[in-house]
């Protein structure tokens, strides 16, 4: 299947594990064009005028929700946010009924974030609007994975053959899973490293190299993607203290020096400065963290466009 033949029109975006290489490439190519719009003085284009997007967030989120909201608005769609911190179980209304309610209002896309793994799959089966998974538990966060791919490709030219190290709490990270699938599909070699208690058992069967020390994982790496450490994991007893984590697993300039001199530093945010990443690394020349945010917007614009319009030609006149 070539890029010319592939279409994402009407397709749910649930994860990168089940996405094909031509589909990923189509999204990345489209995102490159979208990025030009963000840099314009007047950003609004009429491409998605008359279309509606609902951000249905069951977990708090600032950057992903704002990114989707602006992505929709820059393309001319109507965007509504529904944020409910309680899970459907607590709230008393089932996820299916919440989705049916949103569907009945005639929306075209539901962007959903939910604490339960597989909730996006559930939504895709339950209702007709296109479902874009904005993070389902520890399962996947496909738009983060795609924006990370976009960033790597933009900075490094190509992904094939790169050594990418993903550092931190792999066990609970949807970002890690989407990155692992996406990077491997595009030909990168992926290493993961973190405390053994935060590495899923049998993770090597996903095709990655596994380390419980950061140093060997960093050695010669072209890209270092540092994950956020949720402090709740300490309360669950998965590591002793934040202090020890920072000492053993935190990425500081000395450790980063083990990677390639031009290694790209990434972080999905929000950062715990001084814990998983030192400020010197976060704000270094090598850091692409700010660029990731901008690219996230471009990737989400591309996705909204591709699932609704299907093609690759963008009408960019304001």
């Amino acid at each position: 299947m070539t890029k010319a033949q592939v279409s994402l029109r009407g397709k749910d975006i649930l994860g990168l594990r089940t996405m094909s290489v031509p589909e990923i490439e189509l999204i990345l190519d489209t995102a490159r064009e979208m990025k030009h719009i963000i840099d314009r003085d007047i950003k609004k284009v009429p491409t998605l005028r008359g279309k509606s997007v609902v951000n249905l967030f069951f977990e708090p989120s600032t950057r992903t929700r704002t990114s989707f909201e602006l992505a929709g608005k820059y393309l001319g769609a109507d965007v509504v946010n529904i944020t409910t911190s309680a899970s459907s179980v607590v709230k008393g209304e089932s996820l299916r009924d919440t989705l049916l309610t949103v569907e009945a209002m005639g929306v075209d896309i539901i962007v959903m974030r939910h604490e339960a793994e597989g909730s996006a799959h559930f939504a895709a089966k339950a209702v007709k609007p296109v479902i874009i998974n904005a993070g389902d538990g520890a399962h996947e966060h496909p738009t983060q994975g795609l924006l990370d791919l976009f960033t790597v490709k933009e900075k490094k030219g190509s992904i094939a053959g790169l050594q990418v190290a993903i550092i931190g709490d792999i066990l609970h990270s949807r970002v890690a899973r989407s990155n692992i699938w996406g990077l491997q599909k595009l030909g990168a070699q992926v290493r993961v490293a973190g405390p053994r208690t935060l590495l899923p058992r049998d993770i090597e069967q996903m095709g990655v190299k596994v380390y419980d020390r950061v140093e060997p994982a960093l050695e010669g790496a072209d890209v270092v993607n540092i994950l956020r450490l949720q402090r709740e994991r300490q309360q669950k007893g998965l590591f002793p203290t934040a202090r020890e984590y920072a000492r053993i697993f935190g990425i500081n300039p000395q450790r980063l020096a083990l990677a390639q001199p031009d290694a790209l530093v990434m972080h999905p945010g929000p950062m715990n400065r001084g814990l998983e990443i030192s400020p010197e690394v976060a704000y270094s020349e090598q850091s692409a963290i700010q660029e990731q945010v901008k690219n996230g917007l471009a990737v989400r614009m591309a996705l909204l466009f591709l699932v609704l319009m299907g093609g690759t030609k963008i009408e960019t006149t304001a």
């Binding site: 594990r17 793994e117 597989g118 538990g137 520890a138 399962h139 996947e140 609970h172 990270s173 949807r174 899973r177 899923p200 058992r201 049998d202 993770i203 069967q205 996903m206």
Partner: peptide, 14 residues
């Protein structure tokens, strides 16, 4: 708990 739970991010019952 195994390769499938690792891929799906679902906590395992070993």
């Amino acid at each position: 708990e195994g390769a499938v739970s690792a891929a799906l991010g679902l906590r395992g019952r070993p």
